[in-house]
Design a binder for these strands. Structure first.
Lengths: 342, 342
DNA sequence: GCATGAATAGTGATCGTTCACTATCGGAGT
DNA sequence: ACTCCGATAGTGAACGATCACTATTCATGC
């Protein structure tokens, strides 16, 4: 094992405080404090003395005491859903953006019923004193009965009523591109194999799919599935009546799409000659399937990063940075989508 | 830089403290404190008064002030690698185990060179005062030049010199089972398509593979690959000389195995008639490939959970719980592995 | 009537910083 | 010679809890 220093009863040297540093350097504690926070207003001679003392004592400031006094914690909470299906990539983007900006990340998973979740969020804001909350899961109107929340919250994957993304991670927008792509190929009648509707991204893809089909004057044969699984895709393909007239299937992700294709092939339906299939996520296997898989690639890292940067801007009461020109994703047309059969 | 929120301006009501509660309840602050920590030693009448005051004021204790005084933080850091390939499942298990035990999770990613990483860990221990560190990435002898570390650290995926897992996540152990399974089927000459050797799990699988082949008196044709990708598997299969004599391929994970199978099939090699292939992770697609994929299923959630529980036990200076009888994983034999051709 | 002690409640110090003031020192301007 | 001012450094209080003591209450036994 690594450091099983069992003897926690070790002769634990007492904590080095700013006072010890001050004493050794022959200055006041306040001078050391000034040094710690900004390197200005001190004579070079003083700076040297303080630096030497800090180094000799191996001093590191106690962030808890600092927070105690400054009322700031430099801590942002990332709220995850029940942790059953959590996508690491946007998390990563968000976490590293926060670290770069000098914030620490607290990870919290919200479990239990509405009341417990609400209580947890309140505790986060008040007791743990996080300065911002980035949620990967919808929080509903959890805080609505509150006097205006003092802690900025950012929820990934929210849309406004016009289907424009608000916040970030509103990746569903690309569902419109997918449908458009298929429509351009002459398809008129669609099926959507959705992901687990507990996830915002699944709901968003579904909603935008329906909205776009409608807007373009096309037809949706229906929405099936609902758990992101290969199995769900397979079943959806098996269960599709031969006379459904569906020629294009929009799958919630690449795994589902893979299942759909297998299911179709097992029935003797050709892809894309008879039916086109589009996935989502651009997973590597898509390039190795036959046919190769048309899919949507999202820059999830960037999406997570952006959400965090927006949140931090709000925490610091600044204008959020603009991401207008950032490319959040793209459609990758490959072999599984082709012209509609006439 | 951040922090220039000169004054957040909002009409932020002043914080409710234990003093306000005490005043409203008509007791001393110490009585309130006693109530907060344990519900004993107080007269029911007093308890009622305090509870009412807490509720009326919507009081929540300031955990920072508490930590300041108690010298405890109830905070455990989870250290992640550079976040380029991080597996969420064990993280989830670890995080929820910690939450259940009343600890908060701090997520830290270690970046930069050895010196920066070392400094970061020291900061964690001293400045942020985490009580334990669970690392998903090897930390080397980062702390060796330290006076015995006061903070327990647990590193996932370490083996002792006998290839027994120490700590947790030492999932590589199942590589022995995989090789045994193939040996039982008559295979004698193996190839390993490894994962990215930056990851402990990849190194462990590789090491245990080699050790087992050796121990059973078999032959390893070699170890290739090294990035967990479908592509790597595909290339490995394409590059394998026809006369290599290899009849069994152990892939680092299911994606790699998928690539291997595609590569073999594209060359006209039959799986499993000519060559057997085994994957790792029991991803859902394995059941839908043809042939279906023999693989290893790991209970990653449990593995993460166990690592965290061990760490917490050490933090609290208790005997770590025993996981002797827990099943960490199993081999799932399916269509892609069969008897060696004679 | 008083000592005893358990149960309950209160007082003041303390954790390690930073904040709000105040103090000192020199040099420049009047 | 005096004030004034900027640059630099110091003093004591404050952040909000808990800890270590001390004080009060009240039932009990003699």
């Amino acid at each position: 094992m690594h450091g099983d220093n069992a003897d926690s009863g070790a002769p634990r040297r007492k904590r080095v405080t700013i006072m010890h540093v001050a004493e050794l350097a022959g200055v006041s504690h306040q001078t050391v404090s000034r040094y710690l926070r900004f390197n200005g207003g001190l004579k070079p001679v003083t700076v040297d003395k303080v630096e030497k003392a800090i180094h000799d004592l191996d001093y590191r400031p106690d962030l808890i005491a600092r927070s105690m006094r400054t009322r700031r914690t430099n801590r942002i909470a990332i709220v995850l859903p029940e942790l059953t299906y959590f996508v690491p990539t946007p998390f990563r983007g968000a976490a590293s953006a926060a670290h770069e900006a000098g914030y620490q990340i607290d990870v919290v998973s919200l479990e239990g019923d509405e009341a417990r979740r609400r209580k947890r969020v309140l505790t986060l804001m008040d007791s743990e004193r996080v300065e911002g909350i980035l949620s990967f899961t919808p929080l509903g109107d959890m805080l609505s009965p509150l006097p205006v929340s003092p802690v900025p919250m950012q929820v990934m994957g929210q849309y406004d009523e016009k289907m424009r993304s608000t916040g970030a991670f509103a990746d569903g927008a690309f569902a419109a591109e997918v449908v458009q792509h298929l429509a351009d190929l002459g398809h008129r009648r669609f099926l959507h194999v959705a992901g687990n509707q507990d996830w915002a991204s699944a709901r968003n893809r579904r909603t935008v799919y329906l909205e776009t089909v409608d807007r373009l004057g096309l037809e949706s044969y229906g929405v099936v599935g609902g758990d992101w699984s290969v199995e769900a895709g397979y079943q959806a393909a098996r269960d599709l009546p031969a006379n459904s007239g569906v020629t294009a299937i929009v799958a919630a992700n690449d795994l589902v799409a893979f299942g759909v294709i297998r299911g179709l092939q097992d029935r003797g339906v050709r892809v894309p000659d008879d039916v086109s299939v589009v996935g989502w996520d651009n997973e590597e296997i898509g390039r190795f399937l036959s046919p190769t898989l048309t899919t949507v690639e999202l820059n999830l890292e960037l999406i997570g990063r952006q959400a965090m940067l927006e949140l931090i801007a709000r925490v610091e009461d600044r204008e959020p940075p603009s991401f207008e020109h950032q490319v959040m994703g793209r459609l990758i047309a490959r072999g599984s989508s082709g012209p509609a059969p006439r």
